[in-house]
């Protein structure tokens, strides 16, 4: 099953987004938060992201959802340092995580299809 990692500057935001997405992805969903800097403050941490990727990966690959700036760069570094097959989705973090969780729980999901679903969230309008 394709795993998901949610990288936010806030640990609470990462955990909350995972909770919302997991509700849609079902009990089997592999969704891991990686929020906050190395001390738990606002920021991002390569080590936290690497650990979350390892926890989310069962061999089918991992899709990473990111919020701002350093989340993208630190996710890229974590991706380059680890062994798992990882893709970063260019998507809004909450809607993208939700879409990705739904897609990943389907029996035909692939790494590509999960990235694609997450990125479809870029088109969503909230008020018609």
């Amino acid at each position: 099953m394709v795993g998901l990692v949610v990288v936010s500057h806030s640990q609470k935001a990462a955990e909350g987004i995972c909770d919302i997405a997991a509700q849609m992805g079902g009990s089997d969903a592999r969704i891991e938060p990686a929020g906050g800097d190395p001390d738990g403050g606002i920021g991002t941490s390569v080590d936290r992201i690497e650990d979350a990727i390892d926890a989310a990966d069962d061999g089918d690959g991992v899709v990473v959802l990111v919020d701002l700036g350093s989340a993208v760069m630190n996710a890229e570094v974590a991706m380059e340092m680890g062994d798992a097959t990882v893709r970063i989705a260019d998507a809004p973090i909450l809607e993208g995580a939700l879409n990705a969780a739904v897609e990943a729980s389907g029996s035909k999901a692939t790494l590509d299809s999960v990235v694609e679903s997450a990125e479809e969230a870029r088109e969503y309008r909230k008020l018609n």
């Binding site: 190395p38 941490s45 390569v46 350093s70 760069m73 570094v77």
Partner: peptide, 11 residues
């Protein structure tokens, strides 16, 4: 990289 906790880490 491991200790900065922001974009300065990767950069």
């Amino acid at each position: 990289i491991s200790n900065v906790g922001g974009a300065a880490g990767p950069l």
